[in-house]
Simulated assay, not measured.
Amino acid sequence: MDRKFKVAVCQLKVVEEKVRNLSRAREMIGRAAGEGAALVVLPEMFNCPYVARFFPGYAESYPEGESIQMLARAAREEGVYLVGGSLPEKDGEQVYNTSFIFAPDGTMLGRHRKMHLFDVDLPGGLRVRESSTLGAGNRVTVVSTSLCPLGVAICYDVRFPELIRLMVLKGARVVVIPAAFNMTTGPAHWDLLFRMRAIDNQAYFIGASPARDPMASYVAYGHSLVVDPWGNVVDRAGEGEEILCVEIDLDLVEQVRGELPLLRHRRTDVYALELLSPDSIC
């Protein structure tokens, strides 16, 4: 296992034409690999505008979906681990907000279906109802890689500390969160949430946002970031399209956990966190 490796976040602008989104994502994956990234991450709903009513029309089934095939091919051709942001996935009659994770040989390591659906009425009149077109996932996602165990969740999932802690208890050293925070939640909570989760769990946290498009009906915050196990923001993107490339140092994870042993000091004789079903981990 490499103790240091580079991760790249591709903060791309998402438009209504799926073919343009796929072409842009593929180009940015190639550029990220060219910068030495071993792990490449795309944003939430990278092939589709973040609008609930659009999701069924853009939905794809595994493995034949064109976006899914592009991700597998890109991982194989570039020789990288690839967290394919998320996209609308059709399974039978149900549609999910799903992140597909691929190995450098193009095989799928796992997929995370967003567990917590974003049904909110925010200040300023922004109303979102993901549940109007999406179903909820029910699995905690930690995949094994030659880099380290990798946790994956999607956007609103990061607000639920129980889910994130379960990932870390299952071995995650790096947690990837493709996310499309908006112009209300982003300025208020983006940095705060990622730093809190990193401090609580003493792991690297990666937030991958779409680029900001002020003309879109849902305006993403941007500012993709990488936070280290001490809670420091190692680097962040701006508002527009950008590739954020950062070195991950796994020795820092072990150093922080050794100096401030939060995970060892949990009072499991008093409280416990457990999965209700053994089938809820993948």
Rank of each mutant, 00 (worst) to 15 (best):
D2F: 13
R3H: 09
K6D: 06
V7E: 00
V7P: 02
A8F: 04
C10A: 11
L12I: 14
L12A: 04
V19Q: 12
R20V: 01
M28D: 09
M28C: 01
I29P: 14
I29W: 11
G30Y: 04
R31M: 12
A32I: 00
G34S: 08
G36T: 05
A38E: 12
A38Y: 03
V41A: 11
N47Q: 08
V51A: 13
A52T: 10
A59L: 03
S61T: 14
Y62V: 00
G65C: 10
E66I: 07
L71S: 06
L71Y: 08
R73S: 12
R73V: 07
A75V: 12
R76D: 12
E77N: 03
E77G: 06
E78K: 05
Y81I: 14
Y81S: 11
L82G: 06
G85L: 00
G85R: 00
G85Q: 00
S86C: 10
S86R: 07
P88T: 10
P88M: 08
E89H: 07
V95G: 05
V95W: 05
I101A: 07
F102L: 09
D105C: 13
D105N: 11
T107P: 03
M108I: 14
M108N: 09
L109G: 04
G110V: 15
R111A: 06
R113V: 00
R113E: 03
K114I: 01
D119W: 04
L122F: 13
P123K: 13
P123W: 08
P123N: 02
G124D: 02
R129P: 02
S131I: 09
S132D: 15
S132T: 06
L134Y: 01
A136N: 13
N138V: 13
R139H: 06
V140M: 05
S144M: 10
T145L: 06
S146V: 15
S146Q: 11
P149V: 01
V158A: 13
F160E: 12
I164H: 03
R165F: 08
L166P: 14
V168A: 05
V168H: 03
K170M: 09
V174L: 11
V175W: 03
V175P: 15
A179S: 10
A179W: 05
A179C: 15
N182R: 15
N182W: 14
T184D: 06
W190Q: 07
W190D: 03
F194C: 07
F194G: 04
R197H: 08
A198W: 09
N201L: 09
I206M: 12
S209K: 10
R212I: 00
R212M: 12
D213Q: 05
D213W: 05
A216T: 01
A220Y: 00
S224M: 01
L225N: 02
V227Y: 13
V227I: 10
G231F: 04
G231I: 03
V233K: 14
V233C: 13
V233F: 09
D235V: 02
R236I: 02
R236T: 02
G238K: 00
G240E: 12
E242V: 03
E247S: 13
E247W: 00
D249W: 07
Q255H: 09
R257C: 07
R257D: 06
G258I: 03
G258D: 10
G258H: 04
L262A: 03
L262I: 13
R264V: 09
R264W: 01
H265T: 12
T268Y: 01
D269M: 05
D269L: 02
V270K: 00
A272E: 15
L275Y: 07
S277G: 08
S277Y: 01
P278A: 11
